Simulated scan of single mutants.
Amino acid sequence: MDFRYLGNSGLKISEITYGNWLTHGSQVENDVAKECVRAALDVGITTFDTADVYANTQAETVLGEALRGERRQSLEIFTKVYWPTGPKGHNDSGLSRKHIMESIDGSLQRLQTDYVDLYQAHRYDTCTPLEETMQAFADVVRAGKALYIGVSEWTADQLRAGSELARELGFQLISSQPQYSMLWRVIEDEVVPASRELGISQIVWSPMAQGVLSGKYQPGQAPPAGSRATDEKGGADMISRFMDDKTLTAVQRLRPIAESLDLTMSQLAVAWVLQNDNVASALVGASRPEQVHENVVAAGVTIPEDVMASIDEALGDVVERDAARTAQQAPAQRPS
């Protein structure tokens, strides 16, 4: 496993981060989830990402149990705050001081740790003054409950405003967690340049486009039984944007490219996002331990420039590049 610095900080994280969204506490039984975490540790992954909203806090609980007994100093544990949790009352969401201060304590209890390495704003809160949010994060850091602060799906302008306030308050934003893949490149024109300017790295989620880039979904055919596209708990909704025949046909053109590098299509997808020098790590989940072993092969792979060009040619105009899509990730009103 290779490691990269996270933003303009001294924190190193593994190039592959194990994430448990849509798996732990919901799709995968707890014993299998623990086996996946063990597989991640065995292949050298040290960075683990979760959020309080995943399975309504259960994902944090499962991860805490799975990591119990491990040397804490050898791990990087990330979680997030924003979306509704618990009974989903009127203050159980957003980035208000009240919700942040209460949520960090709940996350630490479930994760069975005294601190998280990275605490992330899961979305931008349009209903709370940014000054209030950043002051709360500053206090979380000073209390030793989080070592670093990051965000998820913030626009370039939001990153600049947040970073300026953070510096005034004596800390820094070091990470951004956006969706990024061969098919979803909306961060490239605005978010990535702003991040380079501000000393922020990307920890990208869905590098395999919800599994579409694995090649298992064939144009004109029903999704395989048990796949994410058949998951009515949320997976099917997330993957639907990539499930048209034009996109699936273009993805199949990647198969010979992956084979030419002696990679699976999934490995090619993860290796592709890691070619971006502003990406510190690719988030990869698993419902079976063998998936962890397969995906970790992408760490350290260098894709030649001519092959990168071939990938662009194969996908053509099915790639989403509109920078405005980032702003659309944050609800206009606080969710409830």
Score class of each variant (00 low, 15 high):
residue 99 H to T: 13
residue 177 Q to N: 05
residue 136 A to M: 03
residue 146 A to W: 00
residue 124 Y to R: 07
residue 151 V to C: 08
residue 99 H to F: 00
residue 135 Q to I: 11
residue 165 L to G: 06
residue 148 Y to T: 14
residue 135 Q to C: 01
residue 130 L to V: 09
residue 177 Q to Y: 05
residue 105 D to A: 02
residue 168 E to R: 15
residue 120 Q to F: 00
residue 143 A to D: 11
residue 147 L to W: 03
residue 156 A to H: 00
residue 136 A to C: 02
residue 142 R to I: 10
residue 135 Q to S: 01
residue 149 I to T: 11
residue 182 M to G: 15
residue 171 F to I: 08
residue 94 G to A: 06
residue 91 N to I: 04
residue 94 G to W: 09
residue 121 A to C: 09
residue 173 L to G: 15
residue 108 L to P: 12
residue 118 L to K: 01
residue 141 V to T: 12
residue 88 K to I: 03
residue 103 S to C: 07
residue 122 H to F: 07
residue 116 V to A: 03
residue 152 S to E: 07
residue 105 D to C: 00
residue 175 S to R: 10
residue 90 H to K: 14
residue 178 P to I: 01
residue 138 A to P: 06
residue 131 E to M: 05
residue 104 I to W: 03
residue 133 T to S: 06
residue 104 I to R: 04
residue 98 K to R: 10
residue 138 A to K: 13
residue 182 M to Q: 14
residue 106 G to H: 09
residue 92 D to W: 10
residue 118 L to V: 11
residue 175 S to W: 08
residue 110 R to C: 01
residue 184 W to S: 07
residue 102 E to G: 15
residue 181 S to M: 04
residue 150 G to D: 05
residue 96 S to Y: 07
residue 119 Y to G: 12
residue 107 S to I: 01
residue 111 L to E: 05
residue 174 I to N: 12
residue 152 S to A: 04
residue 136 A to T: 11
residue 127 C to E: 15
residue 89 G to N: 04
residue 126 T to W: 12
residue 176 S to E: 15
residue 167 R to D: 02
residue 176 S to P: 06
residue 102 E to R: 11
residue 99 H to G: 13
residue 96 S to M: 06
residue 122 H to V: 02
residue 153 E to V: 02
residue 166 A to K: 10
residue 93 S to Y: 11
residue 85 T to P: 06
residue 163 S to F: 11
residue 132 E to R: 11
residue 166 A to R: 14
